[in-house]
Simulated scan of single mutants.
Amino acid sequence: MPAKSKAQQKAAGAALSAKRGDTKKSDLQGAARDMYDSMSEKQLEEFAEGGRKGKPEHVDE
């Protein structure tokens, strides 16, 4: 399931980077830290994939 907004996609990308060991978990904040703790690497890949063109910056849900 791809992200519905640019913000979700960016947070998933940051969490994925930490899961892979490219960045430190301590550098994550907010939604990215929550995603790191609650989602698998595969789920994060699916969430972060796809282009950002045409997506809103934020989605209220």
Rank of each mutant, 00 (worst) to 15 (best):
M1I: 10
M1P: 02
P2S: 14
P2W: 06
P2G: 10
K4P: 02
S5Y: 04
K6I: 14
K6W: 07
A7I: 01
Q8W: 00
Q8R: 03
Q8P: 00
K10L: 14
K10V: 00
K10P: 01
A11L: 08
A11I: 06
A12D: 04
A12W: 00
A12S: 08
A12P: 03
A12V: 00
G13D: 00
G13W: 02
L16W: 03
S17I: 01
A18C: 12
A18E: 04
A18P: 02
K19F: 04
K19R: 15
D22H: 15
D22W: 15
T23E: 15
T23L: 14
K24W: 04
K25E: 13
K25S: 11
S26W: 05
L28I: 13
Q29T: 14
Q29R: 15
Q29W: 07
Q29L: 13
G30M: 13
G30C: 10
A31I: 00
R33H: 08
R33D: 12
R33V: 04
D34Q: 09
D34C: 00
D34T: 13
M35W: 08
M35N: 01
Y36F: 15
Y36V: 08
S38Q: 13
M39D: 00
M39E: 06
M39S: 10
S40K: 02
S40A: 13
E41Y: 05
E41C: 08
Q43E: 14
L44A: 01
L44K: 04
E45Y: 08
E45K: 14
E46A: 12
F47K: 09
F47W: 09
A48C: 02
A48H: 05
A48W: 03
E49R: 14
G50W: 07
G50Q: 07
G50V: 06
G51K: 12
G51W: 12
R52A: 11
K53N: 07
K53D: 07
G54H: 05
K55E: 06
K55N: 09
K55D: 01
P56H: 03
P56Y: 03
P56E: 07
P56T: 05
H58K: 15
H58G: 01
H58I: 07
V59N: 01
V59Q: 11
D60W: 07
